[in-house]
């Protein structure tokens, strides 16, 4: 008989620890009671309440607007930056600047941007969150694209140049397509980080249009509970679907 592997204990604890709260949330989302401390039977009413909640809906829309805009901006800036850092400079300083947003504690960037927006009298709103999210988005896209660049064969670009293509032509026709998977991966990362980002949004949002995490924060703080469980379950379902889709997709591409 195989000896018992004691590693299963901490590993099992890890998974228990990670999933216990989530299981509770999912179960509670179907609780008829209006408090999480009592079970009144199975009910889907909280989902109805959730869909009818204007603040949640608007928060979701705001979040998607911010994430989409910030991702688009980050994808462009980050890709160029990655190419520039890999091919056009050896500056350690520029390298450091490009990674900084990913290492900086979010609260530091948040207060910095708040101070900056205030100093230049910039009205806060969705655009101010979008611009803030593009800061770390750019850093993450650049990081992902750079790892991709390391695996891209430079000879194609050279061939293109030798055949008389200009630098921009080479960039658009050769470099970009070969970087596409990296750009997509980086953009997805930037998008998912933006969707979940709370601290920077909290500091740089205007009073009129909160993103979903800000809405959730106030729901949690004000203790109105079961709707959050329903929201959590839905978010979980969405990310689960995404994961499975991504798995399928990567398996599909691997088979080529």
């Amino acid at each position: 008989m195989r000896r018992f592997n004691w590693l299963y204990i901490p590993a099992g604890l890890t998974y228990l620890f990670l999933y216990l709260p989530i299981v509770v949330l999912v179960i509670m989302s179907f609780n008829a009671a209006d408090t999480p401390y009592r079970w009144d039977g199975f009910d889907t009413a909280w989902y109805g309440r959730l869909f009818a909640d204007r603040a949640v809906r608007e928060g979701l829309i705001n979040t998607l607007v911010v994430a989409t805009g910030a991702t688009a901006l980050s994808a462009v800036l980050g890709t160029l930056l990655a190419v520039g850092l890999a091919r056009h400079t050896r500056s350690k300083l520029l390298d450091a600047i490009a990674v900084a947003p990913a290492v900086l504690p979010d609260i530091v960037l948040a207060i910095g941007l708040l101070a900056f927006y205030t100093a230049v009298q910039f009205t806060l709103g969705l655009h101010s969150i979008l611009l803030a999210h593009a800061v770390f988005g750019t850093a993450f896209v650049a990081a992902v694209v750079r790892t991709r660049l390391a695996h891209v064969d430079g000879s194609l670009e050279e061939a293109s140049r030798d055949l008389g293509a200009t630098a921009p032509q080479t960039f658009v026709r050769i470099t970009l397509p070969s970087l596409a998977p990296g750009i997509v991966a980086g953009a997805l990362l930037a998008f998912s980080l933006s969707i979940d980002e709370f601290v920077i949004a909290f500091f740089t949002a205007g009073p009129q249009d909160p993103t979903l995490p800000i809405v959730i924060y106030s729901m949690v703080r004000f203790g109105v509970t079961p709707e959050i469980n329903a929201l959590a379950t839905l978010l979980l379902a969405v990310s689960f679907t995404f994961v499975i889709a991504a798995q399928r997709l990567s398996r599909l591409t691997e088979s080529f």
Binding site: A55, T123, G206, P210, I214, M219, R221
Partner: peptide, 18 residues
């Protein structure tokens, strides 16, 4: 109002002068 989510907005800092 079931959820004071509008408060969310209020929990945010605002700009200076407009």
């Amino acid at each position: 109002t079931a959820v004071p989510a509008a408060l969310a907005a209020g929990l945010v800092l605002a700009l200076t002068a407009c």
